Simulated scan of single mutants.
Amino acid sequence: MTDRPTSPWPLSLPSLSVWPTGQRDLLAQLRDAGCVPGTETDTERIPPAVAAHAIATYTRPGDLVLDPDCGAGTVLTAALRVDRHALGLTARTRWWPLARANVTAAKTAGAWRDGSVLDAQPKILATVCAAGLIGRVGLVLTTLRTAELTSGPDFDPVESAITELATTLFYCEPLLRSGSHLIVVARPLRHSDGSLVDLTTRLVAAATSAGLALVERCIALTAGLRGSRLVIRASLTERRTAGPPTALTAHLEVLVFQRAHDVELAAEAAVGIPRPTQDEATSPIVNGGEYRGWRRAA
């Protein structure tokens, strides 16, 4: 039994932080969040408790929360319920009605901030249609989705999903407000031999190529805590899966990023390096290329 992924290259990661987000089972979380029936069919959704913890930790009331691949809309509901604006995108026809219904349900329950769901691909974020969002998003919160990608004899759903997500992160980076965060939530995946896929290294590499820097690595529990004991929640299908015996998963991987330029400025400030004035500033080189948002960040 192999439960430790092998990284192809050394990666220095921040210390782990554990979120106690599995105290209620997923169906109970959906009921507590006021999600509409059918939301549970989105098996790759971000659990409401995980979304709520991320939003409470990394945003303030009135901030805009963006999920560029929102599925059934659990992130949007969690944001609206705690006085944040919410914007979701999905080009998957089965999810748009559910996401929209969840936004409507939150508004009906008393949420008064703006909530919208666009039937669009994330690439719309790189067009003039999204120009008003540049530098205004308080949190991008999304997940790695693999279930609905096209298959084929040589098709690698994980690689395809990461490539698609890397492009989405590239579109989202200019939208982040200075000092705000982008969070990717990923559930553990396994190779055919039962070993875990090394998602962390590949997701960090994808984010780095989009001009982002890892600032926190967290574990969001999907198991309940009973004193010092974990109560694992798994479906009958997961428990009866044929093949080599593997440990049941009890968590989601949570990677927290900021714009690379913001991280560099914070590091310089910490050691007393003066920040250049607008007249003195020159376009910095970040990750081997010119940083696209240097003028608004300076």
Rank of each mutant, 00 (worst) to 15 (best):
A147W: 07
T246C: 13
R202Q: 12
V286N: 03
I134V: 15
H181D: 04
V271T: 12
S116P: 01
G138L: 00
D3T: 13
T142R: 01
G71H: 02
G22K: 06
E173Y: 08
R145K: 11
H181E: 05
T249K: 11
L189N: 07
V215I: 13
G88P: 06
S160Q: 13
D69V: 08
R177A: 13
G88C: 00
R217H: 13
R292G: 04
A247E: 15
P174W: 05
I219E: 14
L182M: 10
D63E: 11
T108W: 10
S12A: 14
D119W: 10
D63I: 05
P245L: 07
C129T: 15
R45K: 02
M1Q: 10
H53G: 01
T90C: 06
C172M: 10
R259Y: 06
H251T: 10
T150G: 11
F155Q: 14
T246D: 00
V128E: 15
K107V: 12
T57K: 09
T282G: 07
A52T: 11
P174F: 04
L30V: 03
E173I: 02
R94P: 00
H191R: 14
L64E: 03
S15V: 03
V75M: 03
A213W: 02
L66N: 04
T277S: 15
N102P: 05
A166M: 03
E44D: 07
S15F: 05
G34D: 00
T146D: 12
T246V: 15
P157I: 08
L255Y: 04
G73W: 03
D25N: 09
D114Q: 15
R233P: 09
R217S: 11
A126E: 13
P157Q: 02
R60V: 05
L236G: 12
R45C: 09
H251P: 14
E164P: 01
L66K: 09
G115Y: 06
T74V: 04
I134N: 07
L13P: 11
G38S: 11
